[in-house]
Amino acid sequence: MTLLRVSDLTIQDRLGTALVDGVSLSVDRGEILGLVGESGSGKTLACRAMMRLLPGEGLTIRGGEIRLNGADVLTYGEKQMMAVRGREIGMIFQNPASHLNPVMTIGRQIAEGRRRHFGASRREARQHAIELLRQVGIPDPASRVDNYPHEFSGGMRQRAMIAVALACEPKLLIADEPTTALDVTVQMQVLHLLRDLRDRLGLAVILITHDLGVVAQTCDRIAVMYAGRLCETGGKREVLGAPLHPYTRGLIECQPSSDGGAGRMITIQGQPPLAQRFPAGCRFHPRCGSATAECASVQPEMRVEPGADSHAAACHHAASVVNRGMVHGH
């Protein structure tokens, strides 16, 4: 059952550059969607738009729909949005240290939302905070609830931030690079936690990341973005096993662990374009090995691959990319 459906979302900056251009996504209840892309791909911006919290001035949503349980949140007023934020959609960030209030105890920060959205009493909210800390795997939650963020380690802070986000029982959690700042071992623990929350609470998660390894192990479906546009969406097995878009293929190939790890690495030549200089046609074409004249002039639309019910890509040559038989063997 679809919880959130974003269609044709476009976000422009003051100069009219489309930083997010016609992006369509959907997340089902209890599903983890991996949103993959490099810096400047618009993945964070697209998710901020779902909360109607665009950073900075001059950014405007210029089109599209964001339907949460069928209702378009783009038509909501600020007051209605406040009921959505936290309550319907929770958000966690890459750097918990800067997103937790340093002068407020962890418990108070978790309880705050509970009291606001549910009108819980101080004592109820505190009990709930302890319970949440237990759920996110903080040892000895009854005493930890009175700690300040600086008394927590990096991994525990990330858990605490997840607890803050979960306090109002949102249906959807947007996790913006939640493990990038963490060590691999701690990263694994946080990913376990997200999976576990999905299984237990039926939480839907949008996991924004640049790490395909994280996606492969955690997500159900994948959406790949490049320079503000969606390149490819589909189930993780289809996308990682038989990518249709050359960019997705390149991303997979340039992971250091891809082919057993010896010798030169396969790279994507060049670098991601700046927003002011997005190329015409397919935005990936200057870096693409199989680009043709068509790619430089005509913008490819998302097309569902025949025979694959949900695997779609925006590439004129999607078929030949598959034919070249890139399969990640392992």
Partner: peptide, 15 residues
């Protein structure tokens, strides 16, 4: 704990 791009490999158990 190295995340590998292998959709069939489960998230490794906590070591």
């Amino acid at each position: 704990a190295i995340p590998e791009i292998d959709p069939d490999r489960p998230l490794p158990a906590d070591l």
